[in-house]
Design a protein around this nucleic acid. Structure first.
Length: 328
DNA sequence: GTCGTGACGGTTGAC
DNA sequence: GGGTCAACCGTCACG
């Protein structure tokens, strides 16, 4: 039987920590792509997660997470670590909001938002939330944004008059926070900076909660058009493609959704010295290959060189995602 | 014995 | 350049 262990002493020496199974890991850093691929490959071939855990000396929790992630996203690659999401309220957007408000001082924030989309100033991925627009009107534009709809509508700071669409709106994206808690659950994503209405914790009775804007799986082929938002898109490659790409360059993302020329990982001199000329790199790999490829990769050290280099679908699990990865 | 889950301590990179 | 913040990571323990 092949030795799937990747904590070969010759490779792991002095790097990382050792887990309860004897495997080496670096706290806070993802497992190398070949190991991740191997986990998926073994699972696909029918190996139980507990056996994968033992043979690769990776904790079963980690195996579980990687497999769950793969089943959910189709990608074996780790998510982007660190960094922050790009700002949506760019000077250009603020300028357009100001223009709209100058032309029509009575314009609602939600109307401005729709117009930003209509005029292609923003797309659905980077359009500011209604509450963001309200904040811009309040803080950056000033008097122009003062409500002119009447007296007695309450404090404009928290009033819905400027930020909410008509109550009769049928848009499903508008949800009243006064609805029963069973009607809406606010997920981690819902509370992300992008989607957190500033009014959520205020006294406002109605706020807008954005639904996730993930593309359907079958639209993934268009993902490269949205490189600024690739965290929210699905992978466009099959497991085998990821595998073959990773085998060619184990620390380069084997995923076509990598949106720029940078690799999520950089090779180290040690890696090149030890492994670059290994015969395995010249083999024609397949997902059925049972060679002990894990042991020829040096899991550590490695460094991540660019944030957001790897597309990371990040979403609530309740949005109709495929239960099985794309396989063909 | 197996596996899903959340806390934990850690890393990372944008701001 | 350093601090903060919010992403992510794998391990571990629990149920």
């Amino acid at each position: 039987m092949a030795d799937y262990s990747f904590n070969d002493n010759s490779l792991s020496q002095s790097y990382g920590e050792v887990n309860q199974l004897g495997g080496v890991f670096v706290n806070g850093r993802p497992l190398p792509t070949p190991i991740r691929l191997q986990i998926v490959q073994m699972a696909n071939s029918g190996t139980r997660p507990c056996d994968i855990s033992r043979r690769l000396k990776v904790s079963h929790g980690c195996v579980s997470k990687i497999l769950a992630r793969y089943h959910e996203t189709g990608s074996v690659l780790p998510g982007a670590i660190g960094g922050s999401k790009p700002r949506v309220t760019t000077p250009r957007v603020v300028g357009r909001i100001r223009d709209y408000k100058v032309k029509d001082p009575g314009m609602f924030a939600w109307e401005i938002r729709e117009k930003l989309l209509l005029d292609n100033v923003c797309d659905k991925f980077n359009v500011p939330s209604v509450s963001s627009i309200s904040r811009i009107l309040r803080n950056k534009i000033g008097p122009l944004s003062q409500p002119c709809h009447g007296i007695g509508e309450g404090n404009s700071e928290h009033s819905d008059s400027n930020s909410s669409p008509p109550v009769s709106s049928t848009s499903s994206s508008f949800v009243s926070t006064t609805m029963p808690s069973s009607t809406i659950s606010i997920t981690k994503h819902d509370l992300s900076p992008v989607n957190t209405p500033s009014t959520l914790s205020s006294s406002a009775s109605i706020c807008k909660i954005e639904p996730p804007t993930w593309l359907p799986y079958d639209q993934s082929s268009t993902s490269y058009h949205h490189h600024n938002h690739h965290r929210y898109l699905y992978p466009t490659v099959t497991f085998q493609q990821q595998f073959e790409s990773a085998m060619k360059s184990p620390y380069t993302g084997g995923n076509s959704i990598v949106s720029n020329s940078e690799s999520p990982f950089s090779h180290t001199p040690y890696y090149y010295q030890q492994n670059y000329h290994h015969p395995y790199h010249q083999q024609n790999t397949s997902i059925n290959n049972t060679t002990n490829y894990a042991s020829i990769f040096n899991p550590f050290p490695y460094t991540q060189t660019s944030n957001f280099a790897v597309a990371t679908p990040y979403y609530s699990s309740s949005y109709g995602l495929p239960l099985t990865p794309q396989t063909s």
